[in-house]
Structures are given as structure tokens and as C-alpha cells.
Simulated assay, not measured.
Amino acid sequence: YQSRSFPSAYNLARTGTLSTSWDELLWAAITIGRPSTYHVFQHGPTSFHEAIFRLSLIRMAVEQNWHRHLQRTDAFAALDPTEKGMVSYFLGMTLCKLFSSRILNTPSLLHLDVFRPQLNPTILGRSRPDLVGENNAGKWYAFESKGRSSVPSSGDKAKAKLQAHRLVSIGGHPCTLHVGSFAFFQSDLLKFYWRDPDPDAKEPIELPRPGEEWRYYYEPGLSLASMLDEGAMALEHERADATVTIHPKIRELLEQGLWLQAREAARMLQDEFGSDGYRPDGLRVVAGESWSKSYDFSERR
């Protein structure tokens, strides 16, 4: 990965390699807080399918090579440009979430689209950041996350910079970082670039502090965990080869629909979560053995 223009206080390396695991990568994919394509229907099984869809995108897009680096699969290379764009966009958000959690101590991100019912859609528009997150110290960060099937151009990076600038505050608290990021493939290897440029906001966006919007963050994971407990969707679970468990103190709140309370409780319980093997949000995702094997494109066509 490459980091550019971050304040010196963050002490980010300009280049490096981030060591992760399939468990952590799948956790990032499942918990990107954005409205689901299934939300036009009832919640429950539809959120389960949304979670399976996210896992399937990761499985189809990347695999680990002999050097244990992530590379693109033959299946991804075979997609048409429109399909590559969709998968790359999701991969961009997943890596943005992963790096935000590991390097900026900001594990919980929400997509700006979850605020659409509260804001005039013309305010959000198309030229705006994708994600917003609050770190463990109460600082808010804005992220414009993009994905590319090849190395992004200087024009791509400049556009991401402008979009990240527009978000200026959440609940009256100013954004500390306005990050433009890219996940992309270079010589088939998965790479990541992010930059925090000096803010120069035009048409600024001010968001309310999220409350019920945290349902979009937790619902896919809760649905996966619930379906597994009920023994439902067995074939889908077998194909996904990943299990989700939720810390009892968080799950109790989620099952009551207390989304904000679950988020606030998670902030207070992170030390306990870590000692019990959970992520900072109270979820634990475990990838099966198949994730460490090459993706068999021929069996899935």
C-alpha cells in the first residue's frame, strides 16, 4: 500500500504491506454499513442473501498466491468492464474499511446513502464521499473509496480528493481527515492507495450524527449468525464457508433493534471483545479452509 499527505501526527508509513487474514477481510466485507439492494423487501432472509452476496464478490475477485499475497482471480479477469467496475467498487470499500480499522483505529464505517432519507438527495448528489467513520477517540473521518481493475490515473486520484472534501461535519463535529482511497490491481496483485489532501470544500455536506442508521452496519452479520443458529439456508452457508458469531452483550441489543445502543456498547467493550476473539464491533467472522485455496473458476461457471 501507499499513504500520501497524512498529517505527521498519524505517523503513517509512505509504503508498506498490511498483513491480514481471510477472517478479517470477510469481516470488513460483511460490515460495510450501506443500504442493501434487498432493503426494498422485508428484512431477515434478505439481509442474509446480501451478506452471502458480499462474501461471493470477495471469493470471486481475489485469492492468495504461493507467496500468500492477494491477487485477482481468473474469474475476475474474465468479467466485462461493467461487471469489473461493480466488483472493483465493492473491493475498494472493503479495503478502505480494513485499512481504516487497522491503521486509523476506526472500525465502524457507514455509507453516506444511509442518510439519504434525512437529507435532500440533491445535497448528496454523485460527487461526494462514500463512507464516514468515527474513531475510538471521537474524531470523524470522511472516505471516498474507489476500486479499479488497473492502476488509477492522476485524474482518478484528483477526483477522489475533491469528493472526499465535501463532507465537513457530522452532528456538528468537523471531519478531521478527508481521505481519497483506491483498491486496484497491478501485475495481478491487490494494492491500496490512500491520501489525505488539504481540505478545500465546495458545496459542503453536513450530516446528522448517526443513530438508527447503524442497522445497515449490523444487519448482514446478524442475519448470517441467526440463520446459522436456526440451521436455515444450509446450502448457502456451505458454499459461503464462513461463520459469524456476535458477542452476547451486543447480540441482545441487536435482536431488540437497538442499533445505536449496540454501537455505543461496542465502543465501551472493545478490550473485552479483543480478549474474547471478537472484532471491535462485537462480531467474529471465521473463514473456512476453502478460502485459503485457489478459486476454481471452471467449477463455478
Rank of each mutant, 00 (worst) to 15 (best):
L228I: 12
H111V: 07
S290M: 08
W214I: 04
Y295P: 06
Q64V: 10
A160S: 05
W66D: 15
I205V: 15
Y38T: 11
S127N: 14
G257E: 08
Q186H: 13
L254W: 03
T106C: 15
Q270G: 00
S36V: 03
G85V: 05
K293P: 07
G147E: 01
A78R: 10
A183I: 09
H173G: 10
G92E: 01
N65T: 05
E272H: 08
T17N: 14
F6G: 00
I52G: 09
F41T: 11
F297C: 12
R4M: 04
N105M: 11
L57C: 09
H247I: 01
F273H: 01
P152I: 03
R166E: 06
A287Y: 06
S19M: 14
L269W: 04
T94F: 00
L269S: 06
M86I: 15
E219A: 11
A9F: 13
A61T: 14
A9P: 07
L55A: 08
R195Q: 02
A9D: 10
D200E: 12
P208E: 06
Q186G: 13
V285D: 00
Y278T: 07
N136Y: 10
F184T: 02
L25S: 03
I250Q: 02
M86K: 15
W22N: 04
R195G: 00
V244Y: 01
G231K: 03
R126Y: 11
R102P: 10
L258A: 13
M60Y: 15
H237W: 02
S127A: 15
V132H: 05
S298N: 11
G33N: 00
L98Y: 07
F41R: 10
C175G: 07
L12N: 03
Q261V: 05
V168M: 08
A28C: 08
N11K: 12
S36K: 04
H111D: 12
G138V: 03
A142W: 00
L12Q: 00
F53N: 15
K249P: 09
R301N: 11
N135S: 10
L253H: 04
L189P: 07
T94I: 05
F99S: 04
I170W: 04
L258M: 13
I123H: 08
L91P: 03
P45W: 01
F48P: 08
S226R: 11
W291P: 01
A29R: 05
P174K: 10
V285F: 01
T20W: 07
K161M: 05
S5E: 03
H165A: 04
H178R: 08
A232H: 12
G211K: 14
E289D: 13
L228V: 12
S154Q: 11
R215F: 07
